[in-house]
Design a protein around this nucleic acid. Sequence first.
DNA 1: GCTCTGTCATTAACCTGTGACATAGCAACT
DNA 2: AGTTGCTATGTCACAGGTTAATGACAGAGC
Lengths: 250, 250
Amino acid sequence: MQTGIVASIQPAETASALVRKLGALCLLSEEEIAYLEGLQNNTLSVDKGRDFIEENADLRTTFIVMEGWAIRYGLLSNGRRQILSYALPGDILGLHVNFRAAATYSASALTPLTLAVVDPRRVLEISQKYPIIAAGLSWCTAREFAILGDQAVRLGRLSAQQRLAHLLLELWHRVELIGNGAGDWLEMHMTQADLADTLGLSLVHTNRSLSALRRQGLITVHKDHVRLDDIDALIEMTDFNPKHLSEFRV
Amino acid sequence: MQTGIVASIQPAETASALVRKLGALCLLSEEEIAYLEGLQNNTLSVDKGRDFIEENADLRTTFIVMEGWAIRYGLLSNGRRQILSYALPGDILGLHVNFRAAATYSASALTPLTLAVVDPRRVLEISQKYPIIAAGLSWCTAREFAILGDQAVRLGRLSAQQRLAHLLLELWHRVELIGNGAGDWLEMHMTQADLADTLGLSLVHTNRSLSALRRQGLITVHKDHVRLDDIDALIEMTDFNPKHLSEFRV
DNA sequence: GCTCTGTCATTAACCTGTGACATAGCAACT
DNA sequence: AGTTGCTATGTCACAGGTTAATGACAGAGC
């Protein structure tokens, strides 16, 4: 924790989300911080609802979320969509793309989005020059795998209400971890249709499940926010494991 | 393809599964091949049904499947299991573990299994000394992400029969890719209970779905094998995209 | 060789969580 | 005012779950 404090003093206030995230994991030198910030100089703004990665298209770019939320999703020929995961500030999309001829998922901006655009070949450079950063990126990869694994468990073995509760916990915890939390409130950047496409449920049943959790006093639903009224009960009903998200509180 | 041919001549017959896999992707030097084979000198045999990674336990090892099949899975407190993915020869488990304090999934041997046991710190060494191999490992990571993404789409947005068909196609294609294929036959190393835990279905409904595909003339079911009788129709009904598995035919 | 036990596959009957459709209300935008 | 998008809810249908039973097969023990 001492390590974390030292790092936090340095990159905390004006640092990019990725630097704050990695800085909370390990002690970054000023050189490493400068390198990471320089890496993110080339930015792209994406309007809410616009795609910036298209499945099956060539993908030659690594994106780092600087501000806003994005979704990774797969689309079927019948128009059905499955959201795979949410990308928050500090998250990386396409970290392992140098051998990928085509994208295996699409990505879209859920809110107005600012992305850093990075040449994937820089990743090799990082591994050779900055082993600490490389280790941090490796951790980011493992975490991404854990998040997607939880999504598969959620879809395959939880009931509708449990899925919803588990997803709310995940997002709430992740927002907390990046320092954007608001106590037990979670800002809902997505519509109920997005929730449905995340949970593998119909729109109607998603709304029902939301209502059910509300009636049980577990959540309070406002227009753009949800409050988690009994976090322990939600955790209990879903087997939510915060360790899958790793502790790197900013 | 010329590159693939040259590489295949060299490591083809007695080479380990990982070397054959990476060798089919890129031209490996003799030094690189020797390094990769040396990396896999420390092996572990695991009996069928035994766990070798336990969720929430410390994970300080990278495993490479040399022979046999394994599963990655998550387990809930009510005993329900969700199989996340299958690991075949040449696949790597725990490639990104140097910052993981604990495993976020369990892994178990589906068949008698031979694993190479590798220190995760060797990955950094690889990145610094063997950039071609590092790129190959990066590709392995992206592929693993694609496979798990397909699993989420399957669980979230496909019907029971489609899930089954899609999974059979995935496994069949992956077996083909590592050179262990037998035409349109797929050796079934798993029980129907394993299938059920992969597909997020009940055991009984899994059997029903199997019967339904059989009745439709799409598959032929034998005790330990399944034959895909109409691969095009199976692909059509499921949106199966072989490109997600990448083409690296050995 | 026979019996018993355990595992796995298969199927029927009944039940239920969830999907689809329809409708209504509200807010924001044109 | 009309349109669009989103949320909310009722009704009915159905895909899939649960329970129970049966059959086949392999292995262990006598």
